[in-house]
């Protein structure tokens, strides 16, 4: 993907940043100074927010991240929203505006208790996760047995799966989808990780 982008954007004179230690490479728009200013013109802002949404999703997917925390001075925020090469940084309110745009498209969800300080980035839709998880359950022969959420998210069997270390909120959404599909049923537990789920027989 970066190859095609590089060819079409090569003329714009923006240099490509070196890849991060994690192997992630920001697109060259990440070095465009206006990228860090909330554009007052509506049409320009829409394009800008779309670009940011795509960059954020790619970054989160690459690093298997789920939650965006504005108050957390972690490496994620530093790498993603702060470009030290050109000395530009996104303001928190601009990030909020970007996430707002992502929420509108269904690519993110605010943590309702966080007053727009925390958000879940849905780089994969709950429907997709539901398919992944149910496929994994049937392939592993774990249907008709009760599993806890913890087993799905952090269990040994799931270690090589994409949903390993999935965020609880995303997992809950996924389970809601599965229940709605009639593939599984959930059981209340003492806490979130002790919540149980039982997958029915395939095709049931």
């Amino acid at each position: 993907m970066s190859l095609s982008a590089a060819s079409s954007n090569a003329a714009q004179g923006l240099s490509q940043s070196p890849a991060l230690a994690s192997g992630f490479q920001f697109p060259s728009i990440h070095n465009f100074p206006p990228f860090y200013t909330l554009q007052p013109t509506a049409s320009t802002w829409k394009n800008q927010a779309d670009l940011w949404g795509t960059v954020v999703m790619r970054y989160f997917r690459h690093h298997r991240l789920y939650q965006l925390d504005l108050d957390d001075a972690n490496t994620t925020n530093e790498q993603l929203f702060h470009n030290q090469r050109i000395n530009r940084r996104l303001k928190p309110e601009t990030i909020q505006a970007i996430v707002d745009e992502m929420v509108k498209k269904g690519d993110a969800e605010w943590d309702p208790t966080s007053r727009k300080r925390k958000a879940i980035i849905l780089w994969r839709k709950p429907e997709e996760w539901a398919t992944f998880i149910s496929t994994w359950v049937f392939e592993s022969g774990l249907n008709n047995t009760i599993m806890t959420y913890y087993e799905i998210a952090h269990g040994d069997n799931a270690e090589d799966q994409e949903f390993y270390n999935i965020h609880p909120t995303v997992l809950q959404k996924t389970m809601d989808v599965l229940v709605k599909r009639g593939v599984a049923t959930t059981f209340q537990g003492a806490n979130f990780e002790e919540m149980g789920v039982k997958f029915f027989n395939a095709g049931a």
């Binding site: 923006l14 100074p33 320009t44 960059v55």
Partner: peptide, 13 residues
């Protein structure tokens, strides 16, 4: 404030 050409319009990622 510095003004740049609007690269956002046709940027492909």
């Amino acid at each position: 404030i510095r003004f740049y050409d609007n690269l956002f319009t046709n940027w492909e990622l």
